[in-house]
Write a protein that binds this DNA or RNA. Structure first.
Length: 600
DNA sequence: ACTAGGCAGA
């Protein structure tokens, strides 16, 4: 009630409030009007020290109230608001902030609102999103103004790296029937994608359609990218169809994003859709650019299909698309991964001839090639060349070399390299530590590994999911899955999101100790955490049950994974085949592998 | 809004 009359007083005509003030001036001995106009003058001229003395007798809150009541220029009120929060450490109630926002909105001072909200979100994180929306709705029932404010609030959260709060604000805006725009929704979608919050991202997308928020091609591209990143390629294609049906035409970035989705998939033959996508692009009159080709080439290389990559490379050149250092690096990486070092020489010359300068990634690709082929001496020679001949080594260069030493069991060499990083002005990162921790664990030195984890934390680094996966794996290997489980709990405590690998590793530990109950409980737990069991999960469990002679259960798991649409892989077949041989059954074709039920 | 290098699981 009170608020309603207040806001009417505030928004509907300065005349009313002036009348009221005139009346007050009439009645009271000291003229508030005059006082207020003096103050306004001080703020306008930024006489802050004089204002300070003034405030010895009046408190800032009632002064702010006065400014509002007198219908002062919103820019002045904003000036006072900002100054007093900054210099006097004032905190005003949400209601004041909302009134200020509304008066700015009334005056269409949008940039001022944006920067106000930016600061508000940065410092005022103690205000819950729901309380802000509540206060906004009490202040005014102009859906239009509140929508603009909500839109800017969402954006402010996102820009301040608070996408979860931006997401909450997005939802509240829906509850209050406020309409948002792509100006806030696109950055929100993108932030959620960057944080790998694909569920929330999909929710925003669906809501945007429900609320009939206008999409642009960028909105769709972000959504498609998010879905690709989450491995949901079919959904990504569906969204592409959605956009076409809504009259938004895919552009080269849309197609690049989709191609990149296939590239990122860890599957053999993953680029099988590439041709079809390229044809569709051509039919839509969209020319591939250097990014398109770079994605294609890298994808083919990662797929082990060097000839397809080379074909794309030739096509790229014949179409006159600019070849850059990324193109060459992808090819170099592809050739090195296959051990085709001879061909790299020619490619490297071609690169230099076209005036392109190799960079750290180029040499790291070569170094990594040697490391993968266990050519440790060649690797070290190249490494010394890089560090001595004026090329700039990066943390990745060191990590690659450190890793190969660790894999080779040469821990002293690995630690020496780690120590020499500092001389080059390079700081070991979490991956450096993860390589070393893996090396120590492999040597059975769990205590050393644990100490290294403490060291990295003391150096201001954060143990990541990989660190924990390594340590959990090491404990499981020692038959200490109980201790490993404690590390899983620790991950939640330090705010890490365990990955599939985390759960699968611990589950494997339980299985090896014959604790199948714990293994199954862990599967339930991971599904509760929205990590769906994958093929590795099932392989671990099936192997565990087989080893205990529980073939019925193993078979049940096989059926379960098939029902879920998971595809058995090489390891699955090996486990099952091994089990059948044991039972004296001769496995023949794939279809017969799953017929050992009932034999236990 | 889209492109290149290293570390962890059966």
């Amino acid at each position: 009630m009170l608020l309603n009359s207040l806001k009417r007083n505030f928004f509907h005509g300065k005349t009313f409030s002036r009348n009221k003030l005139d009346l007050r001036a009439f009645c009271s001995a000291d003229s508030i009007t005059q006082n207020t106009s003096t103050i306004e003058e001080l703020i306008r001229k930024q006489r802050w020290s004089k204002l300070r003395t003034h405030l010895k007798t009046t408190n800032p809150t009632s002064l702010l109230q006065q400014l509002f009541d007198s219908g002062a220029d919103p820019v002045l009120i904003l000036g006072f608001f900002n100054w007093s929060t900054r210099e006097l450490s004032m905190t005003y109630s949400l209601e004041f902030a909302c009134r200020l926002l509304h008066s700015l909105a009334n005056a269409k001072m949008y940039p001022k609102m944006r920067s106000f909200l930016h600061g508000f979100v940065k410092n005022g994180s103690f205000n819950s999103v729901s309380s802000i929306f509540h206060a906004l709705s009490l202040c005014s029932d102009s859906l239009c103004d509140n929508s603009i404010i909500a839109d800017m609030l969402v954006l402010a959260y996102v820009k301040n790296m608070k996408p979860r709060l931006g997401f909450e604000a997005f939802r509240r805006a829906g509850d209050y029937g406020l309409k948002l725009s792509v100006l806030s929704c696109n950055p929100l979608l993108n932030a959620l994608v960057k944080e790998s919050q694909s569920e929330s991202m999909e929710h925003v997308y669906k809501e945007m359609r429900k609320r009939r928020i206008e999409f642009d091609v960028i909105s769709f591209n972000i959504v498609i990218n998010g879905l690709c990143k989450a491995g949901k390629l079919n959904k990504a294609s569906d969204v592409m169809e959605d956009m076409k049906s809504l009259g938004v035409l895919p552009n080269v970035i849309t197609y690049n994003t989709l191609l990149d989705g296939y590239r990122k998939k860890a599957k053999i033959g993953k680029m099988y859709k590439a041709d079809a996508i390229m044809i569709e692009m051509a039919e839509s009159g969209i020319s591939p650019n250097e990014i398109t080709f770079n994605i294609l080439i890298d994808g083919f290389c990662k797929d082990g299909n060097i000839s397809a990559a080379m074909k794309a490379f030739e096509e790229m050149k014949s179409q006159g698309v600019k070849v850059d250092v990324i193109t060459y690096n992808s090819l170099t990486n592809g050739l090195c991964s296959c051990g085709r070092f001879d061909e790299v020489v020619g490619l490297h010359e071609q690169m230099l001839c076209s005036g392109l300068k190799p960079n750290a990634v180029t040499y790291n690709a070569l170094l990594n090639g040697y490391c993968k082929k266990k050519m440790v001496d060649q690797a070290r020679r190249l490494f010394d060349d890089i560090t001595n001949q004026g090329m700039i080594p990066t943390v990745v260069t060191y990590n690659t070399m450190i890793d190969v030493y660790c894999k080779d069991g040469r821990m002293e060499d690995a630690f020496m390299l780690r120590n020499s990083m500092l001389d080059k002005g390079l700081l070991p990162d979490i991956s450096t530590y993860n390589c070393l921790i893996t090396g120590l664990c492999r040597k059975g030195d769990f205590e050393g590994a644990k100490n290294l984890k403490n060291e990295l934390i003391n150096k201001g680094l954060r143990a990541d999911c990989v660190t924990y996966n390594i340590l959990i794996g090491a404990l499981c290997k020692k038959g200490e899955s109980k201790r490993a489980a404690k590390l899983l709990d620790e991950m939640f405590k330090v705010g890490l999101n365990p990955s599939h690998i985390t759960y699968n590793t611990l589950m494997d530990g339980y299985c090896k100790e014959g604790n199948l109950v714990a293994a199954l409980n862990l599967k339930t737990r991971m599904e509760k955490e929205k990590k769906l069991a994958n093929i590795v999960t099932y392989n671990v469990l099936i192997k565990g049950f087989c080893q205990k002679g529980k073939l019925k259960e193993a078979n049940g798991l096989l059926n379960e994974l098939l029902e879920k649409g998971l595809i058995p892989n090489q390891t699955t077949y090996e486990i099952v085949r091994g089990e059948m041989m044991e039972k004296g059954i001769i496995p023949d074709i794939e279809g017969h592998l799953f017929n050992f039920s009932g034999s236990s």
